[in-house]
């Protein structure tokens, strides 16, 4: 991990209230390990917002890193006002990454703000697309950046039925799983979505990796703010001995059976 002053190349709204920012970050990208890792962005040099904002990496290549974010608070609003040429101080790359097996059938599920690591993994699986399925959920079609295309293994859902399959990602996951069976699920999204996916994969005995979100202070294990409850107390390598896990250093990717959403 390094701190680096990165130069913004692009910062555009790519769907309704969903933005993509790309910046030049040679130091951070040279330490990048894979989809699922995140960075901590300092919003501005002033101290109005003292804490950095954790953002999952949406792509990393040629010394460039991109993030995808949804505007829902003051911090993301500030980010959306940055323009090409602006400099941001960034700490990263942080956390662990998704671990996939080449011969598995991979089902990738992303919803709401949990788009970035899933899209990143989808890009990473480029050569394994025949074995992979992408499911993305949104409230309405304006929030989607892909096209619904089952022939290409891309399934979109909308709560209002305006695009793709009506309903949540769970409807699409059930459909896809019925067809492919033996597989591994990779998911990121709001907690209620992850909770539903967790109970689905546990019930059907499917291996799954979830990228979890947490309110974060430092991102490097010193503040102990970003805990999640653990189901599995056996992993001795954890930062905590028993009940909790630090999302910033043990996560953000966990096996579905390892965590409890409170």
């Amino acid at each position: 991990m390094k701190t680096e002053d990165v130069i913004i190349i692009n910062n555009n709204e790519i769907a309704s209230e969903i933005w993509e920012m790309e910046f030049l970050a040679p130091k951070i990208s040279s330490n990048y390990k894979g989809a699922g890792q995140f960075i901590q962005i300092q919003l501005d040099p002033g101290w109005g917002n003292p804490l950095r904002r954790p953002m999952s990496i949406a792509s990393c290549r040629d010394s460039k890193i991109s993030i995808i974010y949804k505007i829902f608070g003051q911090g993301t609003k500030i980010l959306s006002q940055k323009i090409s040429g602006d400099v941001l101080n960034v700490l990263g790359p942080l956390g662990n990454s998704f671990q996939y097996k080449k011969n598995n059938l991979n089902i990738l599920v992303g919803g709401g703000v949990g788009l970035a690591p899933i899209i990143n993994l989808w890009k990473e699986l480029d050569e394994l697309r025949d074995n992979s399925y992408l499911i993305i959920g949104a409230k309405t079609k304006n929030e989607h950046i892909h096209s619904h295309n089952p022939d290409e293994h891309i399934y979109l859902t909308t709560d209002d039925g305006s695009m793709g399959l009506p309903g949540t990602v769970m409807e699409a996951l059930k459909v896809v799983y019925e067809n492919v069976k033996s597989s591994e699920v990779f998911a990121c999204g709001p907690e209620p979505m992850l909770k539903q996916i967790q109970s689905f994969v546990i019930k059907n005995n499917i291996p799954a990796q979830l990228s979890v979100e947490s309110y974060m202070g430092c991102g490097v294990g010193i503040c102990q703010g970003c805990i999640i409850s653990r189901r599995n107390y056996k992993n001795k390598n954890h930062s905590y001995h028993k009940k909790y896990s630090l999302v910033c250093v043990d996560g953000p990717i966990y096996s579905a059976g390892d965590v409890i959403f409170d």
Binding site: Y215, G217, Q224, G225, C226, I227, S229
Partner: peptide
């Protein structure tokens, strides 16, 4: 083990913690 989550939140020019 410390307190259950959430443990921290940002506030104007500061933060609250209850680790």
């Amino acid at each position: 083990e410390g307190n259950p989550p959430p443990r921290i939140v940002e506030t104007p020019s500061g933060m609250l913690n209850s680790i």
